[in-house]
């Protein structure tokens, strides 16, 4: 691991030394600054702070917010909350998976899109909802997905298939 990353993690660990159970915060901070919580980061946190890698991995694999590899240029969040689920969230996810050729948690080979499935985004009235970066798309239809993606790619998302 390079010294810059080490330094960043050390600083984060330092910041939380007085907190009772800072594990989640530490992981969130690492992801925020370094983009993901990849294996070497987790191992470093485990070694330097007496956490167990098993526990850390349990946490990052439980919360969909964590990424084990660096994200693509744009992150697509598919809402899998209750309301969106009822209104066809699963179909949206299936279609996006097909269009991009990846599963939630993965990034397209060209590094443009990362797909994530998340719990309720807090705007159930618009369900089914997806978010790309900070933009929210409500009442999404499977037939409209391609159109939306193209905006971010400049080229047709078809090329990914």
């Amino acid at each position: 691991m390079d010294t810059k990353d080490k330094f960043i993690i050390d600083t984060i660990l330092e910041k939380f030394t007085d907190m009772k159970d800072p594990t989640l915060m530490i992981l969130q901070n690492i992801q925020e600054i370094l983009g993901c919580v990849r294996e070497e980061y987790l191992t470093y946190v485990a070694e330097s702070n007496g956490y167990s890698l098993t526990e850390l991995y349990g946490i990052v694999s439980f919360y969909p917010q964590f990424r084990l590899s660096p994200p693509g240029k744009h992150t697509i969040k598919i809402c899998k909350g209750t309301a969106c689920h009822v209104r066809g969230g699963a179909a949206i996810q299936k279609n996006l998976q097909n269009l991009l050729g990846i599963k939630p948690g993965d990034t397209t080979e060209d590094g443009v899109f990362t797909l994530e499935s998340v719990r309720c985004l807090g705007c159930c009235g618009l369900s089914p909802v997806i978010m790309i970066d900070n933009e929210t798309y409500g009442r999404v239809k499977t037939s409209k997905l391609q159109e939306i993606l193209v905006k971010y790619k400049g080229v047709s998302a078809n090329e990914n298939q």
Binding site: T54, E55, Y57, G58, S61, F62, Y63, P64
Partner: peptide, 9 residues
């Protein structure tokens, strides 16, 4: 020992 844990969701 921390050999095992629950992973995924």
């Amino acid at each position: 020992v921390h050999a095992i844990g629950i992973t995924n969701k």
